[in-house]
Write a protein that binds this DNA or RNA. Structure first.
Lengths: 299, 299
DNA sequence: ATCGATCTGTAGTATTCCTACACGCTCGGC
DNA sequence: GCCGAGCGTGTAGGAATACTACAGATCGAT
């Protein structure tokens, strides 16, 4: 049940080391293996310690550092520290049937964080910029998605105060179709599909364009959906390496929606921002009132 | 619009430094200020460089390191590397009205990651363990929540193949009430409220217990909801310091649900796991078929 | 089997971090 | 208002650690 480990995720340090292992010299590989097996433990060692633990000499460790692209042991060590801080993708510490819930939590949180980190690094700022431009000029928004991507759409819909225009996120395929078919040129449809292949989502995006609306897509992979996009935001997370790997794509999607909503809000008028603030205050007060009532009730 | 910076988040390194600043000697404060102002830049310096940049001497930065609880500059530096790798809470780099979307993305991703990191550190393994025990023994599950917490409930419902028992997540308050009122002793209701005060959620939890069911709560703060819990999972994220701070609590909630679902799944029978695997395979094949059709269509 | 090329360790050098000590500065007491 | 105590800060030297030049070993090829 433990995973084969080390997929080709080259942009994480550990992944890059794993990918580059064949190129290394035998004794450098010993160092690499040690680091991959216990990256956190490796942090406790200094050069001599690591050399000793790997059964090689100090210069070999040094050469290992150069080989994988660092200009010294120090630099490597801080990079390693960062890599483990951000969390290990599950590929590096597979889920095991006998893990305790606490261990699972550790691994899944790590994986989620690592995945967000990857999405952050790979995000295309230009696409984001264009998307914000489109959304800021919209007169109404429609969010569509199915399954996990549907969750993102629902969440986006809840942020409509920030977007400042009517937002819709119908769950039903027919309702979605009806909504996008009524698009005007200032209607923006945000179509979300992790695979980029979901047939229904693709049809909705097509219908939206057909009706003359604009389309922003949020996808994880190249697919037919992107071809209907005015702007395609690509979210690169880790592949779901096995059945238990949680779907981390949602998280990145939610954060991207946060970014879009916030960016649009910050662009809008002071008056609108005041209204949002007033609403938030009122909401907080409403909660306080409920809270007092709760206390009275239980008293 | 820029935030006052440095809330009392003591468990992040930068927060701890900010909190401890008053205790430091004047010239040590210079070092602290420099590190807080540009943590990433500080990483590029060695001891001499940092001393120089802060306008103090080397032993002063050394004393600074000891003062904030490290046994040397090296240790401090790797801790700092980790802190910035995991992302800076928005308190340390407030949103600015003139930020580009790319800058906003950077900050919001950082904030989200930092927040997940915090939740991970503060998660109570014992509570998790008890929750998994309850869920694994359940004959059916009901997830309830409103607003952002409702999103988590919807997401949880989608994971029912992993839970292996019927899962419900009604969006409507009345439907929720009906569902939990039918609870048997083996029905577990998972009630989610970030504030821990949401009146409706509290009533649902109360009704669930009333009917003889068990209740797991997922909350961010102490509140009336927890008092109805058989198990209370506490998720500590960053407070929403201002109106634009995205609601990061959702993310941690989603990940916790991932953990619960995975833990329960890993406990279940081999036969059940095989069925899940078969379903996933079938789903993937279904997508492939659609994909081929798409390609034919566009050809 | 010997040569050549590549790999690996030994030993020495340079850097960086850490510590002992001394100077100054401030503040309270006489 | 001067003196002394105590804290804060920098100077300088010593220890540890990272880095490099070189030579020996190892393997493969002819």
């Amino acid at each position: 049940m433990t995973l084969p480990a080390h997929a080709g995720d080259v942009d994480t340090l550990l992944g890059a080391i794993a990918a580059g292992m064949p190129e290394l010299r035998p004794s450098e590989q010993k160092v690499a293996a040690l680091v991959l097996a216990d990256p956190i433990g490796a942090l406790d060692h200094n050069m001599a310690g690591l050399a000793d633990a790997a059964g090689v000499s100090e210069p070999t460790v040094m050469r290992f550092c150069s080989a994988i692209g660092f200009d010294g042991f120090r630099t490597f060590k801080i990079a390693l520290a960062q890599a483990v801080a951000v969390g290990l993708p599950i590929a590096h510490s597979g889920l095991d049937r006998h893990d305790s819930p606490a261990q699972l939590a550790e691994k899944i949180f790590d994986h989620s964080i690592a995945s967000l980190d990857r999405a952050r690094r790979r995000l295309d700022p230009a696409a984001l910029d264009r998307a914000v431009g489109l959304l800021a000029g919209a007169s109404s928004l429609i969010f569509v998605g199915f399954g996990a991507s549907g969750i993102i759409a629902q969440d986006a819909q809840q942020k409509f105060p920030l977007f400042g225009v009517p937002c819709d996120a119908p769950a039903d395929f027919h309702q979605q179709f009806i909504a996008v078919s009524m698009s005007t040129p200032r209607t923006v449809t945000v179509a979300i599909s992790h695979t980029g292949h979901t047939a229904e989502t693709v049809r909705i995006a097509a219908a939206a364009r057909e009706a003359g609306g604009r389309v922003v897509t949020i996808t994880g992979d190249d697919g037919p959906l992107s071809s209907y996009a005015d702007v395609d935001i690509r979210l690169s997370t880790f592949e779901d390496t096995d059945m238990f790997t949680p779907t981390v794509s949602r998280l990145a999607g939610l954060v991207v929606v946060d970014v879009l909503a916030t960016a649009v809000a910050l662009r809008s008028s002071e008056a609108h921002l005041r209204r949002v603030r007033a609403m938030k205050d009122a909401l907080a007060r409403m909660r306080d009132v409920e809270q007092e009532q709760d206390e009275e009730r239980s008293a």
